[in-house]
Design a binder for these strands. Sequence first.
DNA 1: CCCCATTGCCTTGCGGCACAAGGTAGTCGT
DNA 2: ACGACTACCTTGTGCCGCAAGGCAATGGGG
Lengths: 126, 126
Amino acid sequence: MTKGRSATGDQRRSQLLRGVLDLCLLSLIAERPRYGFEFAEALADAGLELVSDGSIYPLLARMERAGLITSYRAPSPSGGAPRKYYRLTDTGRAELGRGRADWLAFAGPVGRILTATTPSTGENTA
Amino acid sequence: MTKGRSATGDQRRSQLLRGVLDLCLLSLIAERPRYGFEFAEALADAGLELVSDGSIYPLLARMERAGLITSYRAPSPSGGAPRKYYRLTDTGRAELGRGRADWLAFAGPVGRILTATTPSTGENTA
DNA sequence: CCCCATTGCCTTGCGGCACAAGGTAGTCGT
DNA sequence: ACGACTACCTTGTGCCGCAAGGCAATGGGG
């Protein structure tokens, strides 16, 4: 119990990921070609430890179908099944640009709303 | 002619709202008691013009059922149907505090991922 | 008085998506 | 051969924002 995130916290994080997880993957691919297992690790490195591969693979498939990314296979250097690497298309790069703008246009106002109030736990003057 | 936002952009914004819309409402209520119609307006003022009342009322009902807020009715000063005002409970205030922390712990890493990449592939969007 | 515009609240059906759990396949050490 | 590990993919579930539409109360005009 000490270690785990609260159930409600986990649930909120799941919801928060929506609409932005695809952009994160796109952004990570933009740096260099990546394969599935890498993403969860990279996201955890960035501070988002919660993303399960059951969310990532379907999303990658969707994005490939949408023409945002392409894939190719390569043998795993560490032994095991071959990896499936993804890289960006021009369409994907454009989408990433739009998405970044959308995120900024969203996170700004939200942050303002959430911090604009007096965050005191004191009594309200109702 | 499109009226400004693209369909895909609207959809992303819908997804982005998840997990944070309840916190925004909570935060707005924390300032002072509010009624339904006010929220869409307040969110638009903050820069989020997209939220429809079909999202807000069910959410308010859910939060009331969860014990985060309470409601009372008061006649409308501008004529028309009576308003239903909401105010925070202690539980709601606690949830708001937790939510703010969750948001910060989420928005930070995401912003870092989305801006950390070197957009070296070709042009720079300066 | 009746009608209707305005204000305000609520419901239904829909669709997208993260997730948990489980399954498949390739490679290696023993 | 067998298990362990790496890696990829699928299914079922539940949440929640949204569009569209409907109900209730108030007040003004014909």
